[in-house]
Amino acid sequence: MSELNYQHEVRGYLTGFGLALLLTLVPFALTVWGGFGSVTTFVVLGGCALAQFVVQLRFFLHIDLRRQKREDLQLILFSILLLVIMAGGTIWIVGNLGMRMM
């Protein structure tokens, strides 16, 4: 393994770290100093979290769109699909019940 390769991969981790740092600072800053409406805040919070999720998957866990890695991506996407069905379904159902009990 050549030295160049090592540097290259270290840079990958550092890039990921930098992006993740940014995507952490924004939501914290927004919550502490922000004066936006709650809808805007929630959208930004969710967006930053999703983006950081992708960044960490890409730079720390090496999941990307290259063809030979498609199967790995499919495993994760399938899990996330089920997670969305289960967690989203739970929030929907229990939330709906809660509203009808008010």
Binding site: G34, L45, G46, Q52
Partner: peptide, 16 residues
């Protein structure tokens, strides 16, 4: 990765 969810949903989401 899980911690991203925790600080976003549990802490920031509840305080926002």
């Amino acid at each position: 990765l899980i911690w991203i969810g925790i600080f976003t949903i549990v802490y920031l989401g509840a305080l926002a």
